[in-house]
């Protein structure tokens, strides 16, 4: 009886979380006319994945460059570039903070951790000016670097390094292993699970960027899929026959890759978090 209740609660939770996604997906397989006339649909329609083909191949802008494929590619670059860049930069910084006695350690520490929670949205105009001064407008570097200026990952790696047994360092010192070697040969392999967890978190953050790329890029070839959604929303609002099917397909396409990353790396994700919790 109690088991049944537990399962009931869990199933209710699953339904709460997944029904909206199901509804949008199923509706995307219907004809636009059906959606306009009868609203969202609960059962699959006759159009199959036709809306996805349209969303992927049709271009939103003037140049013909901003197709769904292109936008997915740009988002992928954002997600990967951000996640990898962040992991490298923050692993190194956390290493320096945890393993060395730096004269200015606490200053560095605070400098880094002040950035922890302040989002780009509230300093966006000066950030834009900086990126433009550096000549980085309309470039992947300009899109990614300012986002790396937040210390979340440094924080996680710092926590993790502190849980690494001291004996490893003692042994390394006895062996005369240099600090660079120690980092690459011992610490990096040891951090694999943690890296995977951070990778997932950061990939999702990078992929999901909204306002920053919207302001930063003027060339359609840099449109990301989340930016494209803003475009499709105004198309839906301004069109006589709103292309709901394509809009729904875009929503599903925009969430699919990060969802897949989370599902595929699920095991490492939870494990990484458990380890950082210790």
């Amino acid at each position: 009886m109690k088991k049944l209740l537990d399962h009931g609660i869990l199933i209710a939770g699953v339904l709460f979380l997944l029904t909206p996604l199901y509804l949008l997906f199923v509706s995307s397989t219907h004809e636009v006319d059906t959606l306009i006339r009868d609203g969202l649909q609960w059962l699959p329609g006759s159009q199959g994945l036709a809306a996805y083909e349209k969303a992927l191949n049709q271009s939103l802008g003037f140049s013909g460059e901003a197709t769904g494929w292109r936008m997915l590619f740009n988002s992928l670059v954002m997600g990967l570039g951000f996640a990898i860049g962040k992991i490298i930069v923050s692993m190194a910084a956390a290493y320096a903070i945890v393993y060395f006695r730096l004269p200015l350690a606490s200053f560095f520490f605070w400098a880094i951790f002040t950035t922890l929670l302040l989002p780009l949205e509230v300093r966006i105009i000066p950030s834009y000016a900086v990126v433009s001064d550096l000549g980085l407008l309309n470039s992947y570097t300009g899109l990614i670097l300012p986002l790396i200026a937040s210390a979340t990952a440094t924080f996680y790696f710092r926590q993790f390094y502190k849980t690494v047994p001291d004996e490893l360092l003692e042994a390394a010192l006895l062996d005369n292993t240099g600090p660079v070697r120690f980092f690459i040969d011992i610490l990096v392999p040891l951090s694999r699970t943690m890296m995977a967890a951070i990778f997932i978190i950061m990939f999702v953050v990078g992929w999901n960027q909204y306002l920053w790329p919207l302001i930063m890029t003027t060339e359609e070839s840099y449109t990301t899929i989340v930016m494209g959604l803003k475009n499709i929303l105004s198309t839906v609002r301004d069109s006589h026959i709103p292309p709901y099917d394509v809009a729904f397909a875009m929503i599903i396409l925009a969430m699919l890759p990060p969802v897949l990353v989370v599902i595929i790396f699920q095991k490492w994700f939870v494990k990484g978090l458990v380890e950082s919790e210790k």
């Binding site: 802008g61 003037f62 475009n231 105004s234 198309t235 839906v236 609002r237 301004d238 069109s239 006589h240």
Partner: peptide, 10 residues
């Protein structure tokens, strides 16, 4: 100019 208007601009 979004949507249909944008297409006309293009």
């Amino acid at each position: 100019m979004g949507g249909a208007l944008g297409e006309t601009v293009n």
